[in-house]
Design a protein around this nucleic acid. Structure first.
Lengths: 203, 203
DNA sequence: CCATTTACGCAACGGCAGTAGCGAAATAAG
DNA sequence: CTTATTTCGCTACTGCCGTTGCGTAAATGG
């Protein structure tokens, strides 16, 4: 894991960051489908071969750009699961709606899943991207899973509730709506979702 | 809706079917990422321009191929919602697992979402494809929504259950697992899923 | 019969993803 | 200092998507 001092010429220090910056800017400017690796390299002031040594496909590059934007969402158990989940899912939904706009082509409708769908497809196409995306989601959701466990231990949730399964239902409904049914993602939907899911989970 | 007799030369009668047949065969042979429009047209014995007059992009063509494979899943209320849903979701899961294999590149892992992810991405890229995909899902799920309503009317489900929201949670968890967490989709998971979801929905 | 309209096959093209080959530059080891 | 190793920029290439232009075929309307 340490930077073992290697034999040949070292990698250009700031090149990675410069490429990712240029790629993000280009992605916002042009949208996903008009995003070109050549132009990203050009804007970063780097040869295309240099870029491809770091990210072997366009998919890898774009997922790397998106991954940099994902922060961990802080959340802590307050004693009221429903309130905590409302806030947490609200932030997830806000992030998803932001990713709808970014990288959307003109031919795409208003309910488009935008970049999220592209990331999902990239994860399906390349095993290593898939592993990275899954790790991204695990990191993102680790805290909220811990929260659900605390709520169960404290007796607010039934003892036979499986936190992972419960969260999969919540997140699943959000992504299903975003990626497939195309319906709006807003606070009202989050409320309805939690009403149904917590009905059978509360003690 | 009737075939209004148009002015010029009519579309070649069997061309649509021949192209779709050839495209499906090619998709199975080569997988999604080695699928080429040129070769599909070649195998169908048709000029590329003829193909593009019918499906304006590769995405449109592939979604059309997949759509032909989707049958309506018959389901009827038996008086036992859980048994009915187990069977229905079991068939959905079997179909999804079939689509995992089809069109998977060599670089993709075993938990890949395969064609499903590509269809989702195509739906996000083109508004008309998105509308077609949503319609496909609505048709597919119409019967099971009716079933849930019957179960509510009969008193097996609580009166305050919203069939649509409940089904979104079930389907959402399946697709979330397929597209994002990458976990296995099997009968055991369906059982756990239904256990959690029906706990709060049963009267 | 003739003009119009639309579909067809064919060939060529521009643009982008990804690869290969080259000489030059930057480092570590002897 | 010399050699081996790795990265760099550059150029050129293949393959595929999607478009364009052209001559021809098949239909309708006058």
């Amino acid at each position: 894991m340490e930077p073992t001092p290697r034999r040949g010429r070292p990698r250009s220090e700031g090149a990675d960051a410069r490429i990712l910056d240029a790629a993000l800017e280009l992605l916002v400017d042009r949208g996903y489908d008009r995003f070109s690796v050549d132009e990203a390299a050009g804007r970063a002031g780097v040869a295309k071969t240099t870029l491809y040594r770091r990210w072997p496909t366009r998919d890898h590059l774009i997922v790397a750009v998106v991954a940099r934007l994902q922060d961990a969402v802080p959340v802590e158990y307050s004693g009221d699961v429903r309130a905590d989940l409302t806030r947490y899912l609200g932030e997830i939904v806000a992030g998803l709606n932001r990713m709808r706009r970014a990288g959307r082509p003109a031919t795409s409708g208003d309910g488009s899943a935008g970049l999220v769908a592209e990331v999902v497809a990239a994860a399906a196409r390349h095993a290593d991207v898939g592993a990275a995306v899954q790790a991204m989601f695990r990191r993102r959701n680790a805290l909220v899973l811990r929260l659900l466990e605390q709520a169960r231990e404290s007796g607010e949730l039934r003892a036979d509730v499986e936190p992972e399964a419960l969260f999969d239902q919540l997140a699943g409904a959000l992504y299903y709506r975003l990626l497939i049914t195309g319906g709006p993602l807003d606070a009202e939907y989050v409320d309805r979702l939690l009403a149904g899911a917590l009905r059978g989970a509360s003690a």
